[in-house]
Design a protein around this nucleic acid. Structure first.
Lengths: 251, 251
DNA sequence: CGCAGCTTTGAGTTTGCTCAAGTGGAGTGG
DNA sequence: CCACTCCACTTGAGCAAACTCAAAGCTGCG
């Protein structure tokens, strides 16, 4: 699919109207369009490449030794991400058709950051936000039951997507959710069904979820008593409270 | 435990001899000592606080809604980490006695980054390294079997620790490993035992592991055929290869 | 229509979790 | 010095959850 100049202008205007982090880059942005499944090309230069999602969605994928795919990050509109130039084992792929990126060369970014400390600071913030996404995902993936993982995944999407609250439009397939949460597709399906049966969500179409009962999603899901407190956390809390004295400062 | 000026000087010298990322900060470093389980105090200022581990080890902990603990990051000597000032739901705790940190105020860091673009760049690199740690952990936690998780955890520790290759000294308890990998303690234990029986590792003392067979740890662990390729990955690969055309550039 | 991909459901097996008990070492106090 | 305690670690038994394999809807498109 060719990106017409018309489409480029269209997405450039959307970009300029978005309140993203690095507004002063808008003028330097190259618009890149990708269809579903297309890889965003890896940067040729060692300085890497920066992107901002304008519309659509993208995933950062890694391949495990056993052939399984792990989705390391899910990028939604206004999210920035960085692609290293050197051999990185990951690929970036568009998730939906006509996903639009704003693309910035690593060199350009570096030069601007060199000259403009304020911009450098914002760039740092962008990196922190990526770190925040990653640690949030770690919390989700670390969930005990699949119900818990899917539930918190939905909540995180609800928080990130710009649409109205409680109405989540999934930009991703069940397979993507499975590889994001590190569970099997069937388990994802069953979790959706189960959550609907419990009245926590309502599936309005395969890719649209209405959140009916937030508490049912965030609380330790399942009957009370099913899979109670783990020994590790009990121990962890005990250890933590056993050492209440603060650290010692020196000098 | 009080940090004597003597101890502070001792760790300050170690810091100055370490080839960490932000050498020019050494002069501004405050030395903080923590014993096992002690929390590193959260920053009072909104600019947050930066730390570098000089010796020992530390963990970034979050508490789940169900009371379970998730370790979001494991910081070893020469690792930098950032603690936000505003209400962050996480705590930083020392893992071993007499863990020494170099501490830098967020304001100081920001000011230096403002004046010195080269430093700002290194600071950015530090943030990227933290992001890399987080995504590496995501790969480990996303592993299918517990054997796989423990195996890749050991390999990652081996790669990060400065000691001789193949000889990993665990700075953490089994409980910490459990909460890092999001599995139960018992499972961690059984995995160690199992790996030893397979000849992949040798336990020389409870906290020292000799890696005997690297391939057995990194390959999809278990008998061939046990838990084969997941449908999701097969599909993922099919989808990926089905869209080989590159993205379209515009303008 | 019929294919292809995504989604859902079912059946059987395996893993990992929970509960429970027991080992071993370090530190304490008699 | 030894008994005792505490804590980290280990092992066993039973069960529930998730995985694999299999098959059947559903949807959109050529």
């Amino acid at each position: 699919m060719k990106a017409s100049a018309h489409a480029a202008d269209y997405y450039r205007r959307i970009l300029s109207e978005q309140a993203h982090s690095l507004k002063q880059l808008d003028a330097f942005a190259k618009i890149v369009l990708c269809n579903r499944g297309q890889k965003v090309p890896r940067s040729e230069s060692s300085a890497g490449h920066w992107y901002c999602v304008i519309s659509g969605a993208a995933r950062r994928c890694a391949l495990r030794t056993d052939g399984r795919r792990q989705i390391l990050d899910l990028m939604l509109p206004r999210d920035f991400f960085f692609v290293r130039g050197d051999g990185d084992e990951v690929t970036i792929e568009a998730i939906v058709d006509e996903t639009a990126f704003a693309s910035y060369s690593g060199e350009g970014i570096e030069q601007l950051a060199e000259r403009d400390p304020k911009f450098a600071r914002e760039l740092r913030d962008v990196a922190f936000r990526a770190l925040g996404r990653s640690q949030a995902q770690l919390m989700i993936v670390g969930g005990v039951t699949a119900l818990e993982k899917v539930g918190s995944f939905l909540l995180s999407l609800d928080g990130r997507s710009s649409g109205e609250d409680g109405q989540v439009v999934l930009p991703v397939s069940r397979y993507d959710i499975a590889d994001y949460l590190a569970v099997s597709v069937e388990t994802v399906c069953r979790s959706f069904t189960n959550l609907q049966q419990r009245g926590a969500i309502r599936l309005a179409g395969k890719r649209t979820v209405k959140i009916l009962n937030r508490a049912a999603l965030e609380d330790h899901i399942g009957e009370p008593g099913s899979r109670g407190l783990a020994l590790s956390s009990k121990e962890g809390l005990a250890r933590a409270s056993a050492c209440q004295a603060g650290p010692s400062y020196a000098r």
